[in-house]
Design a binder for these strands. Structure first.
Lengths: 254, 254
DNA sequence: CTTGACTTTGACGCTGCGTCAACTTATATC
DNA sequence: GATATAAGTTGACGCAGCGTCAAAGTCAAG
């Protein structure tokens, strides 16, 4: 029989820990004195070793109790679930590391760090908004990898690059509107130039440009109401015009 | 001016969170009503965005407060420190994942999982004890990588392998004692056989066997009192005998 | 003046113990 | 048997970052 201090020294845990384990019903002493003193036997040492075995693997005490006391408990299943949990934690940390590294890079060489901070936050906001609006659709169509990569590209842009990206988008919409209002043909030279701008604009976020993807994107503009609404907001017909122009130009280049 | 609910909706956090931030002095409202109602302005929105910016990167609120309120605070330094912290967390998780994966593998195909569990714990104990005793010395001499690899090798042993490993060690010590008691020469055939056993024994944990390392190990036996004590515990002279035998045999093989 | 929507403070809960504090017991010494 | 000391006991608070009641006060609208 071992006193609480003896067991704590054998197992390398504090007496407080043993009392706590008693309290939550994880490890009861073999018996208690009439004065309330706790005494542990060999069995309890074994139990404690098992507890520590799982604790070292990062399991919470509630799960450990289930493993050790629920008869016929699915041990293998519990371990695999715990493994998945750990991998999620790891993914989360990897994400944080990525974010912090990017922030450090972005703030280096920039005069005002607070400025860089705000710019970062701004880009993140833009990406998040975009994700909320088109994320599901894009992921279904191009896959998670492509979309994640595109987002990474945006997040890594410098202020100059981002400004160019925004201006490009604006210029496309402007020239589209003018073309549609002037009733220009989607086969015209101006339409071709707009398509080239659009291609450049896409290239700033896509991992790699392909004609297929470009045409698929164009198709989205007329088939998905949210995309269509985006281009037709001020002048109706822009989405259709852009789609035709892309279909002509990108098909003809071949 | 925004009420607490308005700000919480703008920023996507709960009102409770805002009250908590007020309480810990992280974000005070622009002013409070005579009734205690909190009201926030544009400045506070900005502040909150900054807070959330760092919170998303996994920083604790205390650090964030320092960053935002301590004038001339070393922002870059804080970010890099945080990065190191995250990397440590990642290392810890990687270690846990490794442990759990090994446990899952070890328990698969074994009849009694509790048995496998105990065996794992047993090996871990052995490795830990060894680390406590010789770890620092070994790491200085062979480097962390080698030692870690050796430990991994032991931890991955099956029960049969581990038994063989233990028996080999015991046999070496037994035959050493007999040889020394019988006053056999370190040049003798029996000494040679012991050296071969010792080589096999080392091979079970070392990443790769080299004669240099073998001789260095032998040298440890006579130069380090803890190693010497290990072999001389029952019959004095065993450590010296083994060292000489290894020096002869390993040198002569060339 | 009443209703209903908001807001306030206060307090417990969660995780796994560390760390007092105030007391009671066991053990060794004289 | 008295006493000093070591070891044990049961609370209870603290930590981080809020979620989640509860009880009570406040505001704008009708």
């Amino acid at each position: 029989m071992y006193s609480i201090r003896e067991l704590s020294e054998i197992a390398g845990v504090s007496a407080r820990t043993l009392r706590y384990y008693d309290q939550i019903g994880l490890l009861k002493p073999a018996y208690t004195n009439e004065a309330g003193y706790r005494f542990y036997g060999e069995q309890e040492i074994n139990m404690l070793q098992q507890i520590l075995f799982y604790r070292e693997r990062g399991m919470d005490l509630k799960s450990i109790r289930k493993i050790l006391y629920d008869e016929e408990f699915d041990l293998a299943g519990a371990l695999e679930e715990h493994l998945r949990d750990l991998e999620q934690q790891k993914n989360r940390i990897d994400l944080l590391i990525d974010l912090v590294q990017r922030s450090i890079r972005a703030m280096k060489g920039v005069g005002d760090m607070r400025d860089a901070e705000k710019f970062q936050a701004f880009k993140e906001n833009a990406v998040k908004q975009h994700e909320d609006m088109y994320g599901a659709e894009a992921r279904r169509k191009y896959g998670d990898e492509e979309v994640d990569e595109a987002q990474r590209k945006v997040l890594n842009m410098t202020e100059e690059e981002y400004e160019r990206f925004e201006n490009l988008g604006k210029e496309i919409r402007e020239r589209l509107k003018e073309a549609v209002l002037a009733d220009v043909s989607p086969d015209s030279e101006e339409a071709g130039r707009i398509v080239m701008l659009h291609k450049e604009w896409l290239g700033m976020t896509w991992k790699k440009y392909t004609e297929e993807a470009h045409k698929a994107m164009a198709n989205l503009y007329i088939s998905d109401e949210r995309f269509q609404a985006y281009y037709d907001r001020e002048v109706p017909g822009c989405a259709v015009f852009l789609e035709q122009a892309i279909r002509n130009k990108v098909g003809a280049e071949k």
